[in-house]
Design a protein around this nucleic acid. Structure first.
Length: 877
RNA sequence: GCGGGGUUAGCUCAGCGGUAGAGCAUCUGCUUUACACGCAGGAAGUCGGGGGUUCGAAUCCCUCACCCCGCACCA
């Protein structure tokens, strides 16, 4: 065969060329008309205007391994790619961009702004796709979707209207999480609680008609301007008699009642007196409702104090107001104390702003009725969550679920299909009404709010397939089989897809969920731009090649944290180079292509061939098994071990004597070459899901039947190929070679020094074996002769290997003290092991209770150790 | 407070009832005609502490310590 491969693997040269080849061949586009079983997954859609980070690289590598494996295993495989519109994030980016040019969103108007965002999206939409292609993912790009596509938007609208009609969507005035920076409501799961060190202020409130003062503890003194009561515990002896009385709210100088509320007040905390601000605190809001307290809003939607806060404060920022309030209280002697206080503060993760509880009119999904079936689906096994420990988290959240705030005060997104008329009617409809169906007025306009992006993501597994239409794709590929995503979006996305899928299609959206870990840096730190420890997938792909990056991610993929270090990638780039060079070597010795090679002639097989076929079969079993259970680490590790440490280190070395004509007749050579082709072919196919580029590049040179390795059959274990005898004998040969190499290093000989090996074979058959395969020992251990059942001359080095006595004859050489020490250590180790085995075998309980195989194993080991120690002792001069 | 995960070689992790493993790093030799991103050999761990179950425990149970992650609470 032609030999023009470079002696160094250069990923840059081949990766992008091969990706084009795959796309042009449409290998990743499945059929909707086939009898073959299907396998389908949908991508967790990244933000359309975003950039791929290393976490995306991980989740997409794992999906691609799974998908390529299934495709090669004969499934009609669909991996549907796409992106979401990421409402807040995208709007924020475009606003910031406009701000550079001094343009303000509200001044340009809704339509113009939305148009501008679409333009931005068009500009950036290709970026994520290109990055994914660099990674080598086998998505079907002909089916790419975007959450704001017409079809998906229709699904969103249909779901909204249906849920509304079913009474599961409602609009209400309620306290929600408000982001004063983004000027929108957000849902509970978008709030990040962070432990923050703040201050606890104790403030005196004068009692009306008395000299007494009540001391109240608060972390947010500025909200006192909106206090409408103080609350004490109704059974608190200290304050019980004050209930029904009034206090003066300092600064505001307003009279408010003292109420008793057992739910709000914890007698143990602080002073046992709580200020109640129903408009600006979640639990105060509830307390206000229980006690019929008025609401007094003193903060506006931007987090500034409003007119109700008083003339001095109007327009002042909430944190500025806090300082000012404390100052005034202090001047008036009403500030009792200020203590350091650590407590949890709610932040909006997207913009790092402290969230403000705010009463506003929003749209909600009543989640509890949806949660029931979703809980049941996991409980009864219709959906399996892997690793299983995540089920507890899922149940815990689902069983204590709150209604979901789905409206956002944004412009970028699915506009809520509700219409308000001039007479106060609201209609929710799949088509835009021109007049109000209630009163007939034409003065009707659409709701200005848009939906939470996750509302559309929740429909992703079926909206992308054409639902609500019964399209061929929907019928063929829904439900999907597996979802792979990060555990951090189990509530945002996974749970909601299950709820929506069950509600609207009557089926689970996927049967298995694999939750992958979080990529961290080598110290286990979360990657973040501010720490400067982020790894850009494109950077490392450029540096090490996509295959090396993928292999690294796969082999590290177990566990909840995935510490990623560049030197690991360097290690697997070396592995890619190893694959390249081993293949390069093999290719120069393969004399036919897969198409013309014909079947392997079983009768011609020599022990080396029988052994490597047995080993590749064992590896095949292990890899398929590991992939079935999402053990990407085990699968890739098995492949690494096999390819490097069996195929390269031993097999290729063992066939060299034949390939170079030092041993064997022509028939043996032919057979050896045929099997070499076979093993290389199988290895490449086994490796392909993990390292798609390099394996395709090499496999093309083997001349397979299929036009691309992407659709070549994935190896499965074969009957009658396992060969324990061959494995045992080859492992003995390996052990002997290792023993000789050991002595060589131990005694300070060089590779040029030649030894003679004497082997004691217990019977004729084995004697014949060692004579037939003496060439392996000679070649790999650099011997000048192998003698079977001939007495070794005096002074030879004796050992026992896999039960066979061997003697190594080498030139006279003095032993250095270091060498003697090493020999002594080795002997001592064997003695210690023997002692513990003797103790075990001397224990009647052990003999009685341990399984016979274990007892037998110990006996055999005892016999070997005794023989070995005896021989090693003889070596002592 | 509720729930989950972790503590094994210098580093990062696998193993989860029968003789302590891998990768990387490290040390020693080596231009062996595929590869120095290589070859060969080596050193390195009372498997977080304590107790228990068992013939036998990194592995199962109890307990303590420390670390991480959710959720809830936090005047």
């Amino acid at each position: 065969m032609s030999e023009e491969l470079s002696n160094r693997y250069d990923p840059k040269e081949i990766e992008q060329r091969l990706y084009r080849f795959w796309e042009e061949g449409r290998y990743f586009t499945p059929s909707t008309e086939t009898e073959r079983p299907k396998f389908s997954i949908v991508i967790p859609p990244p933000n359309v205007t975003g950039r791929l980070h290393i976490g995306h690289a991980l989740v997409n590598t794992l999906q691609d391994i799974l998908v390529r494996w299934k495709r090669m295993s004969g499934f009609n495989t669909l991996w549907l790619p796409g992106t979401d519109h990421a409402g807040i994030a995208t709007q924020m980016v475009v606003e910031r961009e406009l701000a550079k040019h001094g343009i303000v969103r509200r001044e340009m108007g809704r339509d113009a702004f939305v148009e501008r965002v679409w333009a931005w999206k068009e500009e950036h939409k290709g970026y994520i796709g290109d990055q994914l292609k660099r990674l080598g993912v086998s998505c079907d790009w002909t089916r790419e979707r975007f959450t704001l596509d017409e079809g998906l938007s229709r699904a969103v609208r249909h779901v909204f209207v249906t849920l509304y009609q079913d009474g599961l969507i409602y609009r209400d005035l309620a306290m929600v999480n408000w982001c004063p920076q983004c000027l929108t409501a957000i849902s509970d799961v978008e709030v990040e609680h962070r432990d923050t060190s703040g201050k606890l202020y104790e403030i005196d409130y004068p009692l009306v008609g008395s000299d007494r003062r009540l001391t109240v503890a608060t972390t947010r003194p500025e909200t006192m301007l909106g206090d409408t009561a103080l609350a004490v515990h109704p059974e608190d002896q200290r304050y019980r008699d004050l209930i029904g009385g009034e206090v003066i709210v300092p600064i505001a100088e307003r009279h408010v009642p003292i109420v008793g509320d057992a739910l709000l007040v914890d007698r143990e905390f602080g002073t046992g007196v709580v200020k109640v601000t129903p408009s600006h605190d979640r639990s105060d809001y509830a307390a206000g409702q229980r006690n019929n307290l008025p609401q007094l809003q003193v903060l506006d939607e931007a987090g500034l104090m409003n007119a109700a806060a008083g003339e001095e404060f109007a327009g002042m920022d909430r944190f500025e107001a806090r300082k000012r309030v404390v100052e005034i209280l202090s001047q008036r002697g009403l500030l009792r104390s200020v203590k350091e206080h650590s407590h949890s503060v709610a932040y909006h993760g997207k913009c790092d702003t402290i969230v403000e509880p705010m009463i506003s009119r929003q749209w909600f999904v009543r989640v509890a009725p949806l949660a029931g079936p979703a809980i049941e689906a996991v409980r009864n096994g219709d959906i399996t969550i892997i690793p299983k420990s995540w089920e507890a988290t899922y149940f815990n959240w689902m069983e204590n679920i709150y209604d979901w705030t789905i409206s956002r005060q944004l412009w970028w997104g699915h506009r809520i299909p509700a219409f308000h008329c001039a007479n106060g009617h609201t209609v929710v409809s799949e088509t835009d009404p021109s007049v109000c169906p209630e009163c007939g007025t034409a003065e009707i306009s659409q709701e200005t709010d848009v939906l939470d992006t996750w509302f559309s993501s929740a429909l992703w597994p079926f909206s992308t397939m054409g639902w609500p239409d019964e399209t061929p794709d929907f019928k063929t590929f829904y439900p999907t089989d597996t979802l792979i995503t990060g555990f951090d979006i189990i509530f945002f996305w996974v749970a909601r897809m299950i709820m929506m899928g069950l509600r609207f299609t009557g089926k689970v959206p996927f049967r298995q969920v694999f939750l992958n870990g979080l990529v961290r840096d080598e110290q286990g730190q979360k990657m973040s731009k501010s720490k400067g420890n982020v790894i850009d997938p494109l950077d490392v792909i450029d540096e090490y090649g996509a295959d090396a990056v993928r292999f690294t991610l796969a082999i590290l993929a177990s566990g909840r944290d995935i510490p990623l270090a560049r030197n690991r990638m360097q290690g697997y780039a070396a592995f890619a180079n190893k694959v390249w060079n081993a293949s390069r070597f093999a290719l120069t010795h393969i004399d036919s292509t897969l198409k013309s090679a014909g079947p392997i002639d079983q009768d011609q097989l020599k022990i080396v061939e029988r052994w490597i076929l047995s080993r590749v079969n064992a590896t095949t079993l292990e890899v398929n098994k590991a992939l079935s259970s999402f053990r990407f680490d085990e699968a890739s590790n098995a492949l690494y071990q096999f390819f490097w440490h069996e195929f390269c280190d031993w097999y290729l070395e063992m066939v060299k004597p034949v390939l170079f004509g030092r041993h064997g007749d022509e028939a043996t050579q032919r057979s050896t070459r045929r099997v070499l082709l076979e093993i290389l072919d199988r290895s490449l196919r086994l490796l392909h899901p993990f390292m798609p580029f390099i394996t395709e590049e090499i496999w093309q040179k083997l001349g397979g039947v299929e036009p691309s390795i992407t659709i070549a059959p994935y190896p499965v274990t074969q009957q009658g190929i396992d060969d324990p005898d061959a494995e045992k004998m080859i492992s003995t040969v390996q052990a002997m070679i290792t023993a000789i190499r050991n002595v060589r290093a131990e005694r300070g000989f060089t590779p040029k020094d030649r030894f003679t090996l004497h082997i004691a074979a217990p019977n004729q058959r084995e004697a014949q074996f060692f004579l037939s395969y003496a060439y392996l020992l000679t070649d790999l251990a650099r011997l000048d002769a192998v003698a079977v059942n001939e007495p070794a001359p005096p002074g030879a080095h004796h050992d026992v290997v896999n039960g066979y006595e061997i003697s190594i004859v080498f030139p006279e050489k003095t032993i250095t003290p270091e060498q003697r020490e090493r020999i002594e250590r080795e002997l001592e180790k064997s003695r210690r092991e023997l002692d513990s085995i003797i103790a075990r075998l001397g224990n009647g309980q052990f003999l009685e209770n341990a399984p016979p195989a274990v007892v037998e194993g110990n006996r055999a080991r005892q016999t070997e150790l005794i023989a070995r120690i005896e021989k090693l002792q003889k070596n002592q001069p």
